[in-house]
Design a protein around this nucleic acid. Structure first.
Length: 676
DNA sequence: GCAATGAGCGTC
DNA sequence: ACGCTCATTGCT
């Protein structure tokens, strides 16, 4: 055997790979989530991959000695890199999965959230499924006819908004759906209006139940072939099949959960989000983008329209209105009053607590009991919204296990949740809010209390005994009902799991008021109102006998807001309050957490924008419980105008650590969803 | 004075 | 986790 290069030594093997004749330089986004490596790297395109190495395709490259995945961003003739380029190791497939629009969006979202483009792309692009990719794409769906805008005509600006969509204008709207609204149909009409012009639409909803409803409405509006439903739990093949159908331009209307906000529809004309206050819209993986922000960013970058809809209104949506970025689409006050149920609040000072024996059995305030009885008498179902199991621990006698009752109204005693600071908190009644400092069991006289988990099923049993002969149905964790028929029944549901009732509920009893409003959370009032309105919107109008009873003090702003059915008013007050306190969305804020040493180092390296202000660090609540390492958190805030600057400064500070290979991680979240 | 060895670092 | 640089070591 000849020696040296002749047997295929390194020199010769390298010689086998020649750069492509033209545009031989590939810019690659490598799948590495280290902050200091968050930029494109150049590689030579071997001539044998010349045809396959298209912009947007998946590649494999040698990066610092190991093979990593990446996306080919673009090809060019030259490189800025001084030093020699490595070759692409492999083109995984010529499918251009990363479109230029999504590449730009991912970069922008990463910059907005002080994260890496690689992390955003992991959220945006589903894993490849080779067999699915090999199949030919479906026939492109025909352009559907424009739908009628009648459903939107009941909102003063509704018709104008659809006209703007039809004309391809980048119209932004914050839509307050009226009580009883068939909102999936309205979203489908908006999407179909855009699809009729040959452009695409993306509708993002919180969960699967909403997804199924909106999908069904879209099928009616644009046909089975014109719409796909995207969600993370589809299974790899099916998920990739539907996603590819969108990317390949076969489908113009996409409806899905939060990751669908990145769906690569061709020529997008509308991005819509429903119920943007639902925490499911907040992505739990780095860099923790919120679907509303992704869509707003995307609408801005592409010149498409944005639609933020819900029965309630978030501070963030209110900000879009107040800054003039979006118009309100809201029914007139008269129309809202006509469609809203009659709302009664049962508060601490209320005199009518549980004098009736049946109401005591049901552990309900008397007004709530009577509202339910009246609705059942009118052959209508009754919705009972109860707190999630474990949300607020219910208490029982430590000796005989009899449920602990409030001495005033016989409601269940529970422990208000709050910061885990170890401070003893007195038990309080879940319905009337009265504190119980000296409990004594009514059954056995013992003084001790123990926590027990009471779920919605247990509540359902107790209600069933108070309304003999009435069917009781439950909807909550584990088994969520989409809808219930129109007859008399008690429907016990946890927030977000309320079934739609045929013909509307006759009454809704919203029993988590104290649990919700007692929380130390900044968003507690907004979230309580959102849950109440979303459930309350399923109730018949007051003119048709529809009633809502909410167990919370009528003096609270959130309670006044549901009584008046005016979420815009509430959001305006909340936003003003946030501005006063200096909290998002009035300012831009980052939560930075890590070990005390790591956090101190990052804060030390941080070059704050002019308005920058650091709050803390403070120990992270709950981090000391058993965990050997103490974590601290600092909040950093700047004016909204300097938000991007803050994100860039945080990325730079984190880059110093990742470049040093510091194993002690620091986490950055911009405008974290849960604060304090 | 200079090759051989190894630790550290950037990552194309 | 490779391959580069640069410092240290050991021998002439």
């Amino acid at each position: 055997m000849p020696s040296g290069d002749a047997v295929g030594g390194p020199a010769e093997r390298r010689g086998e790979r020649r750069p492509a004749a033209t545009r031989s330089v590939a810019r690659v986004c490598v799948d590495v989530s280290l902050a200091h490596l968050d930029r494109p790297f150049d590689y030579h395109v071997p001539d044998r991959f010349d045809a396959d190495a298209v912009p947007g395709c998946r590649v494999r490259v040698r990066f610092a000695g190991q093979l990593v995945n990446g996306f080919l961003l673009e090809r060019g003739e030259h490189t800025e890199h001084v030093g020699k380029l490595a070759f692409l190791d492999r083109v995984l497939s010529p499918e251009p999965v990363l479109t230029p629009e999504i590449a730009t969006l991912a970069r922008s979202v990463a910059d907005r959230y002080a994260g890496t483009m690689a992390d955003v792309l992991r959220l945006a692009i589903p894993p490849r499924h080779a067999r699915t990719e090999a199949k030919p794409p479906p026939e492109p769906a025909p352009v559907p006819p424009a739908p009628p805008a009648d459903g939107w005509a009941r909102y003063p600006r509704g018709r104008a908004y659809l006209a703007a969509l039809a004309a391809g204008r980048p119209a932004n709207a914050v839509w307050q759906a009226s009580p009883g609204e068939d909102w999936p149909a309205r979203l489908a009409e908006a999407a179909a209006t855009v699809a009729a012009t040959g452009r695409g639409a993306v509708l993002v909803v919180p969960d699967h139940r909403d997804l199924a409803r909106v999908h069904a409405s879209c099928v009616r509006a644009v046909g089975e072939a014109g719409v796909v439903a995207l969600s993370a739990d589809l299974g790899p093949g099916e998920r990739y099949r539907r996603w590819l159908a969108v990317r390949r331009g076969a489908v113009r209307v996409v409806v899905g959960t939060r990751a669908a906000g990145f769906a690569p529809v061709a020529d997008p004309g509308l991005f819509a989000i429903w119920d943007d206050g639902d925490d499911l819209h907040a992505e739990p993986r780095a860099p923790y983008p919120h679907a509303r922000e992704v869509l707003a960013q995307r609408a801005h970058l592409t010149g498409a329209a944005l639609l933020v809809g819900g029965f309630a209104r978030t501070c963030e949506a209110q900000l879009l209105v107040e800054t003039g970025w979006a118009h309100e689409v809201v029914a007139t006050r008269d129309q809202v009053r006509a469609s809203a149920p009659r709302v009664t609040a049962v508060g601490e000072t209320d005199e009518q607590l549980a004098r009736d024996q049946a109401a005591r059995t049901a552990r309900l305030p008397l007004i709530a009991f009577e509202a339910a009885r009246a609705a059942l008498a009118a052959e209508a179902p009754v919705l009972i919204q109860v707190p999630r199991r474990g949300y607020m621990p219910v208490l029982a006698c430590a000796r005989c296990r009899e449920p602990a009752r409030c001495r005033r109204c016989a409601g269940p005693l529970s422990l208000p949740s709050g910061p885990d600071d170890g401070a003893a908190r007195p038990a309080a009644c879940r319905w009337c809010g009265a504190a119980e400092a000296a409990f004594r069991c009514a059954a056995c006289g013992a003084r001790g209390l123990r926590a027990v988990a009471v779920g919605h099923r247990r509540t359902a049993e107790e209600l069933g005994r108070a309304f003999p002969g009435v069917a009781v149905r439950t909807s909550g964790a584990g088994e969520v009902l989409a809808s219930v028929p129109g007859g008399p029944a008690l429907v016990v549901a946890t927030p977000g799991a309320e079934p739609v009732a045929e013909g509307g509920y006759g009454a809704a009893l919203l029993l988590d008021g104290w649990a919700m409003l007692g929380r130390a959370d900044l968003r507690a009032a907004e979230e309580a109102l959102r849950r109440w309105m979303t459930a309350g919107a399923l109730v018949r109008s007051g003119a048709d006998g529809g009633r809502i009873v909410v167990t919370a003090d009528s003096g609270l702003v959130a309670v006044q807001a549901i009584v008046r059915w005016d979420p815009g008013w509430h959001a305006g007050r909340e936003l003003a309050g946030r501005a006063e306190l200096g909290f998002p969305p009035a300012v831009r804020m980052a939560a930075v957490d890590g070990s005390p040493e790591a956090l101190a180092a990052v804060l030390d390296d941080l070059r704050l924008p002019p308005s920058g202000e650091v709050l803390g660090p403070v120990p992270v609540p709950g981090s000391t419980g058993g965990a050997p390492t103490v974590r601290e958190r600092a909040l950093v805030r700047v004016t909204r105008a300097e938000g991007r600057e803050l994100a860039a400064a945080l990325s730079a500070a984190v880059s110093v650590r990742t470049a040093r290979k510091d194993p002690d991680p620091v986490r950055v979240r911009m405008d974290p969803f849960e604060l304090l």
